[in-house]
Simulated scan of single mutants.
Amino acid sequence: MTKLLLVTLAGTCTALAMPAAAQEAQTSGRNVVIGAGIEVVPKYPGASSGRIGVLPLFDTWRAGAPQPAESPDESIGFALLGERGSALSAGPSFTFASGRSAKDLPGLAEVGSAFELGGYVEAWPLPALRLRGELRQGIGGHKALTGDLAADAVWRGAGDGIMLTIGPRLHWGSDKYNRTFFSVPVANSAGFAPFDAGPGIYSYGAAAGLRLPLGQRFGLYSYVRYDRLTGRVAASPIVVSGSADQFSGGLALTYRFGI
């Protein structure tokens, strides 16, 4: 996984070294960005190895408005209160969360992928500082409540040019969430002693995302993320036998058009 992250970082550095052209501005309707690429993420929460997956991208915003700042680990959402990028906004959010195969930790139950549905609140106390909180309920998979707090410094180039976001993260899980991923229900499950993870903050870290236009239509998107499992979760036999350090990264090609 380290090699793959280095490739992602190399792609980011290469992108930064390329001249950035402002993307074509729409005067009516909506702007749309779609994209796809690859990412490397932990094989499962607490794993010491990674897996390669597909990195899909989608964003849309009103023509004439600047492209909204978006961090790599936030859920998809839309504002019911306020407007994205305004001083305060809030609305529904949803994301897809992968689970854990029974083959990953033989003896422990499989955790299916989950659709997480909830809401977000976002505030901009300063023009280049964004604060965001999310709370989501898993549907399928872990079937539990989880939430995130994030702060991002946002740097923009001219027009809809380069955009860089970077900042700290804090992740919380309910008792059911942490128990699903980090508890060991009975002795000798996967060779581990019984363990109860309990509710609370399970990780802290940071994430950085880069959007770089390559012309009027195409662009590059790259991100890196680090999470450190903490608290009682870090003492779980699952984490002790794996790693408390969780790395992720991805690189994608994007295409922009107007509707």
Rank of each mutant, 00 (worst) to 15 (best):
L229E: 05
G209A: 10
A207G: 06
P213R: 03
G215E: 07
R225L: 14
A208G: 08
T230P: 06
G215C: 08
A206N: 03
A208Y: 01
P213L: 07
G215H: 08
D227N: 15
G205P: 00
R228N: 13
A206G: 09
L210V: 02
P213H: 06
R225W: 08
Y221M: 12
L212S: 11
L229I: 12
Y223F: 15
R232C: 07
Y221R: 14
R217F: 13
T230V: 14
Y204F: 14
S203T: 05
G209N: 00
L214Y: 03
Y204N: 04
F218I: 11
A207E: 02
L212G: 02
R228W: 11
L214I: 05
S222C: 12
R211K: 14
L220F: 13
Y226A: 11
G215R: 07
R217T: 15
R228G: 12
R232L: 10
T230N: 14
Y221C: 02
L210Q: 00
A207I: 02
R225S: 14
G231T: 11
L229V: 07
G215V: 06
L220C: 10
G219C: 07
G219W: 01
L229P: 01
L229A: 06
G219Y: 02
V224T: 13
G209E: 00
Y204M: 09
P213W: 04
L210I: 02
R217M: 13
